[in-house]
Simulated assay, not measured.
Amino acid sequence: MTDARGSTSPSGAVVVGVDGSEQSLRAAHWAAAEAYRRGLPLSVLTAYSMPAFAASSMDGGYAMMDDSGLRAGADGVIEQAREFLRDYPAEVTYRVESGDPSTVLLEESRTAELVVIGTRGRGGFLGRLLGSVSSALPAHAQSPVVLVPLQFSSQAENAVTSATGAIPIVSESDGPGAAAPASLVEQGAKPIRERDPRPVIAGVDGSDYGRVAALTAAREASERGTTLRLVCALPPVSAITMWAPTHIDDAEAIEELRGKLYAGALWLNYHYPSLHIDYEVQSGTSVDVLVDQTRHAQLTVLGTRGRGGFAGMLLGSTSQGVIQRAAGPLMVVPENSDRRIANRDEFGPVL
Rank of each mutant, 00 (worst) to 15 (best):
E108D: 15
A28M: 08
S49C: 14
T111S: 15
A112D: 14
S98E: 15
I117A: 07
D66N: 10
A55E: 11
Y94S: 00
A74N: 06
G17W: 08
Y62R: 12
T46C: 13
V115G: 04
A74C: 02
A31H: 11
V44R: 03
R5A: 04
D67V: 05
S49T: 15
V16G: 12
S109A: 09
A32F: 11
A35C: 05
A32S: 15
H29C: 06
G20V: 14
V92C: 05
E107N: 13
S43L: 01
H29F: 01
E108M: 12
V15P: 05
S7R: 13
L25H: 14
A28T: 11
S56Q: 11
P41V: 02
A55N: 07
G60Y: 05
L106H: 05
S21Q: 07
V77S: 03
V16C: 10
S7W: 00
A112C: 10
S109Q: 10
H29V: 07
E97Y: 00
S24E: 11
A74E: 08
D3H: 12
L40M: 08
I117P: 04
L42E: 08
L42C: 15
T8Q: 05
G6D: 08
P41F: 02
G60V: 06
A55S: 09
G73R: 13
E22H: 03
P10Q: 02
E108S: 13
A74R: 09
D19A: 11
G12M: 02
S7P: 00
D3N: 06
D87T: 14
V96L: 04
R38Y: 00
S43W: 14
E91G: 03
T103I: 06
V104G: 04
P51E: 11
S21F: 09
F84Y: 15
G76P: 00
D100K: 01
Y36C: 01
A13P: 03
D75T: 02
D3T: 09
G118F: 06
E79S: 02
S56H: 06
V14E: 06
S57T: 14
S7Q: 14
A28N: 13
M58V: 04
A28W: 07
P41E: 03
G69I: 11
Q80I: 08
V104K: 02
F84L: 11
D87W: 09
V15N: 02
E97K: 01
A52W: 09
E79V: 07
L106P: 04
V44N: 06
S109N: 12
L45N: 02
G118R: 02
L70D: 12
P41G: 01
L70T: 07
L85I: 11
L106W: 06
